[in-house]
Structures are given as structure tokens and as C-alpha cells.
């Protein structure tokens, strides 16, 4: 979970390093800790440190972690030559290491040589059959080849063994959504919410999936989860406010004419609409007339 202060610190360090101030190593450590994907910056500043002999010797043992980080960033920026150099340096220092073997497999993936990459991973799995990262790379290979069904199958097998891996559940949910299997995606999000109930983003994603699936029960559940997102974020999440407005409208359309044995959520819609208007007034006043017109059209505001 990337918090606001951490992100602000990351951006501040990034602009500081870009403009020539020091702190490149601190920036790289923070990127590694927050697992942000900023490959171009990492590559540029990482190479800068690795090329300067003084900075490199200051790092001591951490130099090799930097090699690994730069190798992955280079692969992401499609500079496979740099990645190759880094991996060679690492394999000279740590011959026969599984971590270096993984990097070699990733390099083959980046070059597009999927069968060779799979061969290397199969070899590594013989000695370490329960290595989580290699199993995840197999999923990534299937995903990169566009074979989403196989990716889903691999990931399901992985999750049978490692049920507590939240990132894998999240990835599976996203894969299901991309092949439009919404019920299964909803199940994945349910698992995530069960294990980490205080993260509002999972509630939001779950509500989105339920809203997409449609149908009265799903819409009512979606409205509840949008409301819980608003609860967890103190009302600051604009998307959840929109979600409440739209799901209320959809529910009203479905129950038109039916006897409404309503509970108390009759005042939720106008409240959400009002909060939305206030939000836009504060943050984007030039768009306020558009929002007012839209809300008026769906009769949430008079």
C-alpha cells in the first residue's frame, strides 16, 4: 500500500535527483521498497551510480542488489544489452545462484524467446519446486503470449499452494476481468477483502465488478461496497461517490413500479450527489456545470 506521504517523498526525491541534486541511492531504495515501476528513471540513475567507481564502492554489498534492480529496469526499457551486462556481472559473482538464474530467464522473456525461458525455469524448478517467483513468471509468460486461459490456470494452481499471496489474488482478479469472467473476479476480490478489510481500493474494485455484472442483487451489493469505500476513505473518494449515484439510479430503474420495501437508504443518494458537487466545486470548479447537468438528468439533484 503506497501512502500519500511515501508517494510525495518518492516524487520529491525523483525531481531532486533529476535536477542534479544527490540522493540517487535513496531514491532507488525507496522505489524498491514501494515496488513502483519507474524503469526509465531507475535505469538512468542506476547506471550513473554503477558507472562511477566511487559511488559503486560506497555501496558495499548492496551493489549487487542494484545490479539486479538495474537489470530488470533495463529489460523493461528494452535495453537488453545493459541487462545482459548486469546479469553477466552478477553471475560472475554468484555462480549457480537461483536468483541470477531467474534473471536470465527474465532476459529471455524480454527478448521474446518464450520456449527457452520456460526451459530455464523448468530447470530451476527441479531443484526448487516451490519457488514462488518462478511459478509467477510462468504465469507472466503465458500472459505475455496472450494465452490468458493458460495464465489463469497456472495462477489457480499457484494459489492452491500459496493461498495467502495477495498480489496473486489481485492479478487473478485482473486476468478474469480482462477475459470477462466477472463472477470469478468478484470471488477473487472477496478473498482480498476478507484478508485485508481495511484497504478501500479492494472494496472499490469489488463494487465496480458487481456494478458491471448488473442485476438487482449485485447492484444493491455494489451500492453497499461503494458506501464502505466512502466510509474507509472519509468521503474523499470521488469514484465511490459516483458509484453510489449511478448504482442508485440503476436500482431505481429496476424496481420501478415494484413495491419498494425500502430501508433507510433513501437519503444516501442525495447526500452522495451533494458531496460530489462539493468535491467538484473545491477541486475542479470549471467542470461543475457538467456534473450538475448530469446529476439533474438522472434526477438526483433538483
Amino acid at each position: 500500500m503506497v501512502g500519500a506521504t511515501e508517494e510525495a517523498r518518492l516524487n520529491q526525491l525523483e525531481s531532486q535527483v533529476d535536477n542534479g541534486g544527490g540522493g540517487a541511492w535513496e531514491y532507488l531504495c525507496l522505489v524498491r521498497k514501494l515496488k513502483a515501476r519507474r524503469s526509465e528513471k531507475v535505469l538512468r540513475h542506476g547506471i550513473f551510480i554503477l558507472n562511477s567507481h566511487i559511488a559503486r564502492s560506497k555501496l558495499g554489498g548492496e551493489e549487487w542488489t542494484l545490479y539486479e534492480q538495474v537489470a530488470v529496469a533495463a529489460m523493461d526499457c528494452h535495453r537488453n544489452d545493459i541487462a545482459n551486462d548486469c546479469i553477466e556481472a552478477l553471475s560472475k559473482k554468484f555462480p549457480g545462484s537461483i536468483r541470477v538464474g531467474r534473471l536470465k530467464g527474465m532476459l529471455l522473456e524480454a527478448k521474446g524467446a518464450w520456449p527457452d525461458a520456460e526451459k530455464i525455469y523448468a530447470q530451476l524448478l527441479v531443484d526448487n519446486p516451490l519457488d514462488q517467483i518462478i511459478l509467477k513468471r510462468k504465469v507472466a509468460i503465458a500472459k505475455a503470449q496472450g494465452n490468458l486461459a493458460a495464465a489463469v490456470e497456472y495462477l489457480n494452481n499457484y494459489l492452491e499452494t500459496f493461498m495467502a499471496d495477495h498480489d496473486a489474488w489481485r492479478e487473478l482478479a485482473e486476468l478474469y476481468i480482462s477475459i470477462q469472467m466477472y463472477k470469478q473476479a468478484a470471488f477473487c476480490y472477496e478473498e482480498l477483502i476478507l484478508s485485508q478489510p481495511t484497504v478501500p481500493l479492494y472494496h472499490l474494485a469489488y463494487a465496480d465488478v458487481l456494478y458491471t455484472m448488473g442485476g438487482l442483487e449485485n447492484l444493491q451489493a455494489a451500492k453497499k461496497y461503494y458506501a464502505s469505500t466512502i466510509n474507509l476513505t472519509g468521503g474523499k473518494n470521488t469514484r465511490a461517490l459516483y458509484g453510489i449515484c449511478l448504482s442508485s439510479v440503476a436500482i431505481n430503474q429496476l424496481t420501478k413500479g415494484r413495491n419498494k420495501d425500502e430501508k433507510d437508504s433513501a437519503d444516501l443518494q442525495p447526500l452522495a450527489a451533494e458531496a460530489l458537487l462539493k468535491d467538484y466545486k473545491e477541486r475542479a470548479p470549471e467542470k461543475l456545470p457538467l456534473v450538475t447537468a448530469m446529476l439533474r438528468n438522472i434526477k438526483l439533484v433538483s
Binding site: M1, V2, G3, A4, T5, E6, E7, L34, K35, A36, R37, E40, L43, R44, V72, M75, D76, C77, H78, R79, M106, E109, A110, G112, Q132, I133, K136, R137, V139, A140, K143, A144, D167, R170, E171, V199, P200, L201, T233, K236
Partner: peptide, 26 residues
């Protein structure tokens, strides 16, 4: 300060055949 801004991008499942392939960096 505490609000969750984003979830960490899933780097374990990162794939490399995205559009950046067409314009190698520097």
C-alpha cells in the same frame, strides 16, 4: 498523510512486451 494512494504495481507478474519495445530508451 496516511491515505492509500495506490497499490504497489505487481512486479512479479511484469511482462516486457509492451509498447515501450518499439522505442528503446536512450
Amino acid at each position: 498523510e496516511n491515505r492509500v494512494v495506490s497499490l504497489p504495481s505487481n512486479l512479479d507478474f511484469m511482462i516486457f512486451n509492451h509498447r515501450g519495445r518499439l522505442s528503446p530508451f536512450d
